[in-house]
Nucleic acid binder design. Sequence first.
DNA 1: TATTGTTATACTCTATAACTATA
DNA 2: TATAGTTATAGAGTATAACAATA
Lengths: 161, 161
Amino acid sequence: MAARRAKSATNEAAQQAGDAVAIGVLDELLGFHLRQAHDASFRAFARNSGDPRLRPGRFAAMMVIHNNPGITQVALSRAIARDKSSITPLIQELQRLGLVIRKPSPRDRRSTTLRLTAAGERMLADLLEHARAHDRQLDAVVGDKKRELIALLRQIAEALT
Amino acid sequence: MAARRAKSATNEAAQQAGDAVAIGVLDELLGFHLRQAHDASFRAFARNSGDPRLRPGRFAAMMVIHNNPGITQVALSRAIARDKSSITPLIQELQRLGLVIRKPSPRDRRSTTLRLTAAGERMLADLLEHARAHDRQLDAVVGDKKRELIALLRQIAEALT
DNA sequence: TATTGTTATACTCTATAACTATA
DNA sequence: TATAGTTATAGAGTATAACAATA
C-alpha cells in the first residue's frame, strides 16, 4: 500500500491549486476503470439525449420489448437483470406515456404480455438515434478495437452474473 | 429497426419457457455493453465484499484520500466526479466510522482537509484485498488483454468527461 | 464577486417482504 | 407448492438551490 508519489504538508496546496489527484493502485484495477468509463458514458448519454424521458434504463426495457413482443414482465425483469418488483413502476410509467400496452396472457392468467405501441416504436427509433450518436462518440475513441472491446465486456458480464 | 428474429404469437411461449430474449441492435452498442459489464462487476463486488460498509463509492473516496492526504472536500468531489454536496454525508459517515479525520486548513479557513486514520488505513488495506480478489476474477476473464482493455476504458472516461 | 462546505429537499433506481390470483 | 405481478416500504446515491463564512 505504499503510495506512488511523495506526500506531505505541501500536498494540500497542490490540491487547492487544482492539480490532478493521485489515484494510486486504483489505476491497476479493471473494476475501477469499468466504473469510471460507465459513469462517463452514462452521463454523456443522459446529457445529450435532450429528452429527459429517455433514460438508459427505459431505453433498454423498450428495446427488449421491441425485440420480444409479447414478453412477460418476469421475463423482462430477467433480461435486464432487475427484480420483478422494479419492473412494475417502470412499465406503469411507460404505459402512462402511451409507449407500451399490456395485455393479459391468454395462456397463463397470472401473466401480462407487453408490446410497444406505435408511439412507443417511434420513441424507440428516436432513442436509438440518440444512442447511436452517443455510440459514434465512443466509436471515435476506440476505433477499430470496438469488436474486441465489446467481446471482452460481454465476457465480463457473463462471467460475473 | 427491423427485428432480427421472427416474432409472432409463439414468442410469448418461448419467453415463458425461459428462452434467452433477443436484444437486437443493443448488441452493437458499446454503451450497452459498458452498462452490462459494469453492472455485473459492481454486483459481484458488493456480493463478495462481505462487509456491507465497503461499497465501491466509499472505497474510491478512501483511496483518493489515502493517495492525497490533506485533500480538501471540493478537490475530492472533483476527483470522484460528484457534487460537493454529495461529499458531505459521505465524509460524515466515514468520520462516524472513525476512518477519516477532518482538520481545518491552516491556509484557507473555508477549507477542511481530509486524512485517513490508522483504522481507516487498515480498513482500506482490507478493502483493497477484496478489490484485488474481485479483480483477479476479472483478470481470469480478460487474460492478457487487461492492459489494452484498461487503456480503452480510460480513453472513454477521459473523452466523455 | 467567487469559493468552501452545509443544509434542506427531492428524485431516481432498486430491493425485500408480504400479499393475491393463479398454476 | 411454486410463480406472476402488485403494493408498501425503505435505503442508497445523487443533485439543485440557498446559505454563512471566508477569500
